[in-house]
Amino acid sequence: MLYNLNIEDVLFLDIETVPQQPTFHELPENFQKLWTQKSAYFRAEGQGPEDVYERAGIYAEFGRIICISSGVVVQKGGERFFRVKSFHDDDETKLLASFNNMLNKFTNHPGKCLCAHNGQEFDYPYIARRTLINGLRLPKILDLAGMKPWDVKDKLMDTLQLWKFGDYKNYTSLSLLCAAFNIPTPKDDIDGSQVAGVYYGEGDLDRIVRYCEKDTLAVANLLLRYKGEAIIGMENMEVV
């Protein structure tokens, strides 16, 4: 399947998430109790729920999406370019409505699929869960009820799962795979652990968007490497 895949049929994406509130103590009382219960499973001895609140952004029930970057590979004049569009807003409902509308249009054609790194464990379910929490209709490609596992795998590609080759023991980061395949790293400014601080501490959403777009290009380049094809340089990334 990998070598027969038309790279122009793939929509690459990456999401950035943050906790619902800047600090634990700004959560509603019921969510403080719920986070205390949830975090009990991974807090170290002596840590309180406020000490690990920065991790709340990775859980759809306690976090929210602030940016989704999506991109496609296009041919122009015999040369490949990566065309990327970002959906970002402090209003998550508006962000998701716009993104899901685009997603439905893109996937309304035969053979189209999505690709993300660790998408099956994070990006795809997170988008779906936050879509429902915001009272929106699931995009067709993420409405998985009744779908067979192999159908899901074909529609929702994951560069992490492809790299595992059936191995369920290890997580391999996008940064490590970029280094292994000699792909220019997108981690030249911030990384995922700093997103909440940049968003709440600096209010710099544009900086987060740029980081997210670079990650999306890195995912596309990783899949190109898997296919044994040349990567696309940053100079050939078009932001629309």
Rank of each mutant, 00 (worst) to 15 (best):
G166N: 05
M157G: 05
P139C: 02
I190G: 02
C212S: 13
R210C: 05
G135C: 04
E202W: 03
W163K: 14
G146C: 03
T172K: 15
L132P: 01
F181L: 14
I190E: 09
G146K: 06
S175D: 15
L160A: 09
I183L: 14
K187D: 11
G203Y: 03
V152A: 03
L144V: 04
Y199G: 12
G203K: 07
L138S: 10
I183Q: 11
G201I: 13
L176V: 12
M147P: 01
P184G: 00
G146W: 06
Y200H: 05
K153G: 01
A220P: 12
R210D: 13
D189Y: 05
R137C: 00
T185M: 03
S173W: 00
Y200G: 10
C212N: 15
Y168T: 05
M147L: 13
G135K: 04
R207T: 10
G166C: 05
V198Q: 06
P149F: 09
D191Q: 08
G197A: 00
N170K: 13
F165V: 07
G197S: 00
K155G: 07
T159V: 08
G203F: 02
L224Y: 08
I141Q: 08
Y168P: 00
C212E: 12
L224E: 14
D151R: 11
Y168G: 02
N221G: 03
L138G: 07
Y226C: 06
G197C: 00
K214F: 00
V219I: 11
K148A: 10
L205T: 14
L222Y: 03
D204E: 05
I183F: 11
A220K: 06
V209K: 10
R210L: 05
L224R: 15
A218Q: 09
V198A: 03
W150A: 15
I208N: 03
L156Y: 01
D167Q: 06
I183D: 11
I190T: 04
A145D: 11
L136A: 10
G166W: 10
F165Q: 12
Y199A: 09
L160E: 01
L156M: 01
V219T: 15
I141V: 15
Y171V: 04
R130L: 01
L142V: 02
T172Q: 07
N134H: 03
